[in-house]
Protein backbone atom coordinates (compact mmCIF):
# COMPACT_ATOMS: atom_id res chain seq x y z
CA UNK A 1 0.00 0.00 0.00
CA UNK A 2 2.82 2.32 0.89
CA UNK A 3 4.41 1.61 -2.41
CA UNK A 4 1.18 2.27 -4.16
CA UNK A 5 0.72 5.54 -2.26
CA UNK A 6 4.30 6.55 -2.94
CA UNK A 7 3.87 5.87 -6.62
CA UNK A 8 0.69 7.89 -6.57
CA UNK A 9 2.39 10.78 -4.78
CA UNK A 10 5.27 10.71 -7.24
CA UNK A 11 2.85 10.61 -10.11
CA UNK A 12 0.77 13.48 -8.72
CA UNK A 13 3.86 15.61 -8.04
CA UNK A 14 4.99 15.03 -11.62
CA UNK A 15 1.51 16.05 -12.80
CA UNK A 16 1.73 19.14 -10.61
CA UNK A 17 5.18 19.93 -12.02
CA UNK A 18 3.65 19.84 -15.49
CA UNK A 19 0.60 21.77 -14.37
CA UNK A 20 2.55 24.65 -12.82
CA UNK A 21 4.42 25.12 -16.10
CA UNK A 22 1.27 25.41 -18.16
CA UNK A 23 0.08 28.82 -19.37
CA UNK A 24 3.00 30.69 -17.87
CA UNK A 25 2.45 34.44 -18.04
CA UNK A 26 4.86 36.14 -20.44
CA UNK A 27 7.63 38.06 -18.74
CA UNK A 28 6.43 41.29 -20.34
CA UNK A 29 3.06 40.95 -18.65
CA UNK A 30 4.69 40.23 -15.32
CA UNK A 31 6.97 43.22 -15.66
CA UNK A 32 4.19 45.51 -16.82
CA UNK A 33 2.08 44.50 -13.82
CA UNK A 34 5.05 45.19 -11.60
CA UNK A 35 5.21 48.70 -12.96
CA UNK A 36 8.82 48.21 -13.95
CA UNK A 37 8.25 49.95 -17.26
CA UNK A 38 7.39 53.11 -15.42
CA UNK A 39 11.12 53.46 -14.87
CA UNK A 40 11.99 52.26 -18.32
CA UNK A 41 13.03 54.44 -21.18
CA UNK A 42 9.57 55.51 -22.37
CA UNK A 43 8.56 56.42 -18.82
CA UNK A 44 11.82 58.24 -18.22
CA UNK A 45 11.43 60.10 -21.51
CA UNK A 46 7.92 61.15 -20.56
CA UNK A 47 9.09 62.33 -17.16
CA UNK A 48 12.06 64.12 -18.74
CA UNK A 49 9.82 65.89 -21.25
CA UNK A 50 7.34 66.95 -18.57
CA UNK A 51 10.15 68.18 -16.32
CA UNK A 52 11.82 70.02 -19.20
CA UNK A 53 8.54 71.74 -19.99
CA UNK A 54 8.15 72.78 -16.37
CA UNK A 55 11.73 74.09 -16.25
CA UNK A 56 11.23 76.03 -19.48
CA UNK A 57 8.19 77.66 -17.97
CA UNK A 58 10.25 78.54 -14.90
CA UNK A 59 12.91 80.03 -17.13
CA UNK A 60 10.34 82.07 -19.01
CA UNK A 61 8.94 83.42 -15.75
CA UNK A 62 12.33 83.89 -14.09
CA UNK A 63 12.80 87.44 -12.77
CA UNK A 64 15.01 89.49 -15.07
CA UNK A 65 16.74 90.89 -11.99
CA UNK A 66 18.72 87.65 -11.58
CA UNK A 67 20.30 87.93 -15.02
CA UNK A 68 20.92 91.66 -14.59
CA UNK A 69 22.51 91.28 -11.18
CA UNK A 70 24.71 88.45 -12.46
CA UNK A 71 25.88 90.50 -15.45
CA UNK A 72 26.54 93.56 -13.29
CA UNK A 73 28.44 91.52 -10.75
CA UNK A 74 30.65 90.05 -13.45
CA UNK A 75 31.11 93.51 -14.94
CA UNK A 76 31.97 94.96 -11.57
CA UNK A 77 34.46 92.21 -10.85
CA UNK A 78 36.13 92.72 -14.22
CA UNK A 79 36.14 96.50 -13.81
CA UNK A 80 37.67 96.09 -10.35
CA UNK A 81 40.36 93.85 -11.81
CA UNK A 82 40.99 96.42 -14.54
CA UNK A 83 41.29 99.16 -11.92
CA UNK A 84 43.82 97.07 -9.99
CA UNK A 85 45.82 96.47 -13.18
CA UNK A 86 45.75 100.22 -14.01
CA UNK A 87 46.89 101.08 -10.50
CA UNK A 88 49.73 98.60 -10.63
CA UNK A 89 50.71 99.84 -14.09
CA UNK A 90 50.82 103.40 -12.81
CA UNK A 91 52.91 102.39 -9.82
CA UNK A 92 55.29 100.55 -12.13
CA UNK A 93 55.51 103.56 -14.43
CA UNK A 94 56.35 105.72 -11.44
CA UNK A 95 58.89 103.25 -10.11
CA UNK A 96 60.65 102.44 -13.36
CA UNK A 97 61.70 105.33 -15.71
CA UNK A 98 62.54 102.84 -18.45
CA UNK A 99 58.91 101.79 -18.68
CA UNK A 100 57.89 105.43 -18.96
CA UNK A 101 60.33 105.89 -21.85
CA UNK A 102 58.85 102.85 -23.54
CA UNK A 103 55.35 104.26 -23.17
CA UNK A 104 56.42 107.60 -24.59
CA UNK A 105 58.19 105.81 -27.41
CA UNK A 106 55.02 103.90 -28.30
CA UNK A 107 52.83 107.01 -28.03
CA UNK A 108 55.01 109.86 -29.32
CA UNK A 109 53.91 113.41 -28.74
CA UNK A 110 51.68 112.54 -25.82
CA UNK A 111 52.62 114.33 -22.64
CA UNK A 112 51.94 112.00 -19.76
CA UNK A 113 50.09 113.82 -17.01
CA UNK A 114 47.51 112.91 -14.39
CA UNK A 115 44.64 113.94 -16.66
CA UNK A 116 45.78 111.57 -19.40
CA UNK A 117 46.37 108.80 -16.90
CA UNK A 118 42.91 109.31 -15.41
CA UNK A 119 41.33 109.31 -18.84
CA UNK A 120 43.12 106.16 -19.94
CA UNK A 121 42.37 104.36 -16.68
CA UNK A 122 38.70 105.36 -16.58
CA UNK A 123 38.26 104.43 -20.25
CA UNK A 124 39.90 101.05 -19.67
CA UNK A 125 37.74 100.40 -16.60
CA UNK A 126 34.55 101.51 -18.36
CA UNK A 127 35.26 99.48 -21.50
CA UNK A 128 36.10 96.43 -19.37
CA UNK A 129 32.87 96.87 -17.46
CA UNK A 130 30.70 97.19 -20.56
CA UNK A 131 32.35 94.38 -22.50
CA UNK A 132 32.38 91.99 -19.57
CA UNK A 133 28.73 92.77 -18.84
CA UNK A 134 27.85 91.89 -22.44
CA UNK A 135 29.87 88.70 -22.26
CA UNK A 136 28.30 87.80 -18.91
CA UNK A 137 24.78 88.36 -20.27
CA UNK A 138 25.49 86.17 -23.30
CA UNK A 139 27.09 83.48 -21.17
CA UNK A 140 24.24 83.58 -18.67
CA UNK A 141 21.68 83.21 -21.45
CA UNK A 142 23.56 80.24 -22.89
CA UNK A 143 23.89 78.67 -19.45
CA UNK A 144 20.16 79.03 -18.83
CA UNK A 145 19.41 77.52 -22.24
CA UNK A 146 21.65 74.58 -21.36
CA UNK A 147 19.89 74.20 -18.00
CA UNK A 148 16.59 73.41 -19.74
CA UNK A 149 17.98 71.64 -22.80
CA UNK A 150 17.45 67.92 -23.41
CA UNK A 151 19.92 65.49 -24.94
CA UNK A 152 20.09 61.87 -26.04
CA UNK A 153 20.84 60.57 -22.52
CA UNK A 154 17.45 60.67 -20.81
CA UNK A 155 18.75 59.82 -17.35
CA UNK A 156 21.46 62.48 -17.53
CA UNK A 157 18.75 64.96 -18.54
CA UNK A 158 16.65 63.97 -15.54
CA UNK A 159 19.62 64.56 -13.26
CA UNK A 160 20.34 67.89 -14.87
CA UNK A 161 16.71 69.03 -14.88
CA UNK A 162 16.27 68.13 -11.23
CA UNK A 163 17.80 71.57 -10.59
CA UNK A 164 15.68 74.26 -12.12
CA UNK A 165 17.05 77.29 -13.98
CA UNK A 166 16.31 79.52 -11.00
CA UNK A 167 18.43 77.30 -8.75
CA UNK A 168 21.25 77.34 -11.31
CA UNK A 169 20.99 81.12 -11.73
CA UNK A 170 20.90 81.77 -7.99
CA UNK A 171 23.96 79.60 -7.54
CA UNK A 172 25.81 81.49 -10.27
CA UNK A 173 24.85 84.85 -8.77
CA UNK A 174 26.00 83.76 -5.32
CA UNK A 175 29.24 82.28 -6.63
CA UNK A 176 30.27 85.53 -8.31
CA UNK A 177 29.24 87.66 -5.33
CA UNK A 178 32.47 87.35 -3.35
CA UNK A 179 34.65 88.05 -6.40
CA UNK A 180 32.48 90.95 -7.43
CA UNK A 181 32.56 92.67 -4.04
CA UNK A 182 36.22 91.86 -3.35
CA UNK A 183 37.53 92.98 -6.73
CA UNK A 184 35.26 96.04 -6.88
CA UNK A 185 36.48 97.10 -3.46
CA UNK A 186 40.11 96.33 -4.28
CA UNK A 187 39.92 98.16 -7.60
CA UNK A 188 38.23 101.23 -6.17
CA UNK A 189 40.59 101.38 -3.22
CA UNK A 190 43.68 100.85 -5.39
CA UNK A 191 42.83 103.37 -8.09
CA UNK A 192 41.78 105.99 -5.55
CA UNK A 193 44.94 105.43 -3.54
CA UNK A 194 47.25 105.81 -6.53
CA UNK A 195 45.52 108.80 -8.05
CA UNK A 196 45.06 110.43 -4.65
CA UNK A 197 48.75 110.04 -4.04
CA UNK A 198 49.62 111.50 -7.45
CA UNK A 199 47.30 114.44 -6.90
CA UNK A 200 48.79 115.19 -3.49
CA UNK A 201 52.35 114.97 -4.76
CA UNK A 202 51.60 117.14 -7.79
CA UNK A 203 49.67 119.66 -5.70
CA UNK A 204 52.68 119.96 -3.46
CA UNK A 205 54.86 121.17 -6.34
CA UNK A 206 52.40 122.72 -8.76
CA UNK A 207 49.62 125.28 -8.59
CA UNK A 208 46.20 123.70 -8.17
CA UNK A 209 45.08 124.80 -11.64
CA UNK A 210 47.92 122.79 -13.25
CA UNK A 211 47.47 119.58 -11.34
CA UNK A 212 45.79 117.59 -14.07
CA UNK A 213 47.81 118.91 -16.96
CA UNK A 214 51.30 119.03 -15.47
CA UNK A 215 53.73 116.72 -17.26
CA UNK A 216 56.50 117.21 -14.74
CA UNK A 217 55.08 114.57 -12.45
CA UNK A 218 57.05 111.69 -13.91
CA UNK A 219 60.04 113.77 -14.92
CA UNK A 220 60.73 115.27 -11.52
CA UNK A 221 60.83 111.88 -9.80
CA UNK A 222 59.14 113.33 -6.75
CA UNK A 223 56.32 110.77 -6.94
CA UNK A 224 58.76 107.91 -7.43
CA UNK A 225 60.64 108.74 -4.27
CA UNK A 226 57.61 108.33 -2.01
CA UNK A 227 56.09 105.14 -3.31
CA UNK A 228 56.65 103.23 -0.06
CA UNK A 229 53.43 104.33 1.70
CA UNK A 230 51.45 103.76 -1.52
CA UNK A 231 52.66 100.21 -1.87
CA UNK A 232 51.84 99.46 1.77
CA UNK A 233 48.42 101.03 1.33
CA UNK A 234 47.79 98.89 -1.76
CA UNK A 235 48.82 95.80 0.20
CA UNK A 236 46.43 96.71 2.99
CA UNK A 237 43.59 97.31 0.51
CA UNK A 238 44.27 93.91 -1.06
CA UNK A 239 44.09 92.19 2.32
CA UNK A 240 40.81 93.92 3.16
CA UNK A 241 39.45 93.04 -0.31
CA UNK A 242 40.23 89.37 0.29
CA UNK A 243 38.59 89.54 3.74
CA UNK A 244 35.43 91.13 2.30
CA UNK A 245 35.27 88.67 -0.61
CA UNK A 246 35.63 85.69 1.70
CA UNK A 247 33.10 87.25 4.06
CA UNK A 248 30.52 87.32 1.24
CA UNK A 249 31.18 83.68 0.45
CA UNK A 250 30.92 82.68 4.10
CA UNK A 251 27.66 84.54 4.39
CA UNK A 252 26.21 82.49 1.50
CA UNK A 253 27.50 79.28 3.02
CA UNK A 254 26.52 79.81 6.65
CA UNK A 255 23.72 82.34 6.22
CA UNK A 256 25.24 84.74 8.74
CA UNK A 257 27.50 87.74 7.99
CA UNK A 258 30.94 87.73 9.59
CA UNK A 259 31.71 90.26 12.35
CA UNK A 260 34.00 92.23 9.96
CA UNK A 261 31.20 92.46 7.40
CA UNK A 262 28.72 93.53 10.06
CA UNK A 263 31.10 96.22 11.30
CA UNK A 264 31.97 97.42 7.82
CA UNK A 265 28.36 97.68 6.66
CA UNK A 266 27.24 99.63 9.75
CA UNK A 267 26.43 103.32 9.17
CA UNK A 268 28.91 104.36 11.87
CA UNK A 269 31.72 103.02 9.67
CA UNK A 270 30.72 105.43 6.93
CA UNK A 271 30.53 108.30 9.40
CA UNK A 272 33.93 107.41 10.86
CA UNK A 273 35.40 107.09 7.34
CA UNK A 274 34.08 110.48 6.26
CA UNK A 275 35.36 112.18 9.44
CA UNK A 276 38.75 110.50 9.13
CA UNK A 277 38.95 111.36 5.43
CA UNK A 278 38.16 114.99 6.07
CA UNK A 279 40.77 115.12 8.80
CA UNK A 280 43.40 113.54 6.56
CA UNK A 281 42.54 115.91 3.69
CA UNK A 282 42.87 118.88 5.99
CA UNK A 283 46.21 117.65 7.34
CA UNK A 284 47.47 116.92 3.84
CA UNK A 285 46.43 120.31 2.51
CA UNK A 286 48.13 121.95 5.48
CA UNK A 287 51.28 119.94 4.87
CA UNK A 288 51.28 120.73 1.16
CA UNK A 289 50.85 124.47 1.63
CA UNK A 290 53.27 124.90 4.53
CA UNK A 291 56.06 122.64 3.39
CA UNK A 292 56.53 123.65 -0.24
CA UNK A 293 59.62 121.98 -1.74
CA UNK A 294 60.38 120.35 1.55
CA UNK A 295 59.29 116.79 2.25
CA UNK A 296 57.61 116.10 5.57
CA UNK A 297 59.06 113.54 7.97
CA UNK A 298 58.70 109.88 7.26
CA UNK A 299 56.40 109.31 10.29
CA UNK A 300 54.21 112.15 9.18
CA UNK A 301 53.89 110.77 5.68
CA UNK A 302 53.13 107.22 6.87
CA UNK A 303 50.58 108.51 9.38
CA UNK A 304 48.81 110.41 6.64
CA UNK A 305 48.94 107.38 4.38
CA UNK A 306 47.46 105.13 7.08
CA UNK A 307 44.74 107.67 7.83
CA UNK A 308 43.89 108.15 4.17
CA UNK A 309 43.79 104.44 3.51
CA UNK A 310 41.69 103.84 6.62
CA UNK A 311 39.16 106.43 5.49
CA UNK A 312 39.20 105.03 1.97
CA UNK A 313 38.67 101.46 3.18
CA UNK A 314 35.81 102.50 5.47
CA UNK A 315 33.99 104.54 2.84
CA UNK A 316 34.58 102.17 -0.10
CA UNK A 317 33.82 99.08 1.97
CA UNK A 318 30.59 100.55 3.25
CA UNK A 319 29.64 101.66 -0.27
CA UNK A 320 30.21 98.27 -1.92
CA UNK A 321 28.35 96.47 0.87
CA UNK A 322 25.47 98.94 0.61
CA UNK A 323 25.36 98.25 -3.12
CA UNK A 324 25.38 94.54 -2.38
CA UNK A 325 22.46 94.85 0.06
CA UNK A 326 20.54 96.71 -2.61
CA UNK A 327 21.16 93.87 -5.08
CA UNK A 328 20.17 91.27 -2.55
CA UNK A 329 16.88 93.10 -2.06
CA UNK A 330 16.34 92.97 -5.81
CA UNK A 331 17.01 89.25 -5.78
CA UNK A 332 14.71 88.76 -2.82
CA UNK A 333 17.46 87.18 -0.66
Amino acid sequence: MNTQTDRMITSDLAALATDVRRDLPPIDTALRDTGVYRDGLPGAQARRDALAEERRLQLALMPLAIAQVFAHRVGRAAAGAAAIVCSLALVMLLADPLLMHLVLWFVPGLGVNIGICMMVASTAILVTYVVSTWIAEAWFTRRMREAVATHADVYADLDQLSRGPIDVASKLVKRIDGWSIGLAFGGAAAITTVFGYLLVVTATFQPLSHILSSTSLFAERAAAGNLGPVIYALGLATVIAVVIGRGCDREHRFGEPTPVMKRLSHWSTLAAGVLLGMGVMFATARMATRLLYQLPSSEHRYLLAVGAEGALIAITGWAVLWWRRREQKRLGD
Binding site: L24, I27, A30, L31, V36, D39, G40
Partner: peptide
Amino acid sequence: SPSQRFQRLLEPVHDRAV
Protein backbone atom coordinates in the same frame (compact mmCIF):
# COMPACT_ATOMS: atom_id res chain seq x y z
CA SER B 1 18.83 51.55 -15.46
CA PRO B 2 17.64 49.41 -12.50
CA SER B 3 14.58 48.39 -14.51
CA GLN B 4 16.68 47.27 -17.47
CA ARG B 5 18.96 45.35 -15.16
CA PHE B 6 15.99 43.68 -13.48
CA GLN B 7 14.51 42.71 -16.82
CA ARG B 8 17.82 41.28 -18.03
CA LEU B 9 18.32 39.22 -14.89
CA LEU B 10 14.74 38.02 -14.65
CA GLU B 11 14.38 36.84 -18.22
CA PRO B 12 16.28 33.51 -17.90
CA VAL B 13 14.73 32.52 -14.54
CA HIS B 14 11.22 33.91 -14.85
CA ASP B 15 9.40 30.78 -16.00
CA ARG B 16 10.96 28.50 -13.40
CA ALA B 17 10.34 31.06 -10.66
CA VAL B 18 6.66 31.30 -11.62
